[in-house]
């Protein structure tokens, strides 16, 4: 029973990933693509969490935290590049 529910959740998340991928491909503007990539990162975190429950292990728990930090840094850098034109400003 539990396994079926987890599989259904995985399938729903896979459909989400496919839809987000379409948004990355056809997204008319750059911010659309950045937001879609950020959402893909968050969905992958959910994926790893459910796979962790399915395989009955906790060794992927580092990956969850690491992936969310990396997704944050990536979105941060991309949006800063869009707004200012430079990722790291030289300062005055």
């Amino acid at each position: 029973m539990m396994n079926t529910i987890l599989t259904i959740a995985l399938v729903i998340m896979a459909i989400t990933l496919a839809l987000l991928f379409i948004r990355v491909i056809i997204g008319p503007s750059i911010p659309d693509r950045i937001l879609a990539l950020d959402a893909i990162g968050v969905t992958l975190v959910g994926f790893i969490g459910i796979i962790m429950i399915k395989q009955d292990t906790i060794v992927y728990s580092d990956v969850v935290l690491l992936l969310s930090i990396l997704a944050f840094v990536g979105t941060f850098a991309l949006s800063k590049f869009l707004e200012r034109g430079a990722v790291i400003e030289p300062g005055d």
Binding site: V73, F76, A77, K80, V87, I88, E89, P90, G91, D92
Partner: peptide, 9 residues
């Protein structure tokens, strides 16, 4: 992240 949020100097 510190370098991104503030500036280089």
């Amino acid at each position: 992240i510190l370098y991104l949020a503030f500036d280089m100097k």
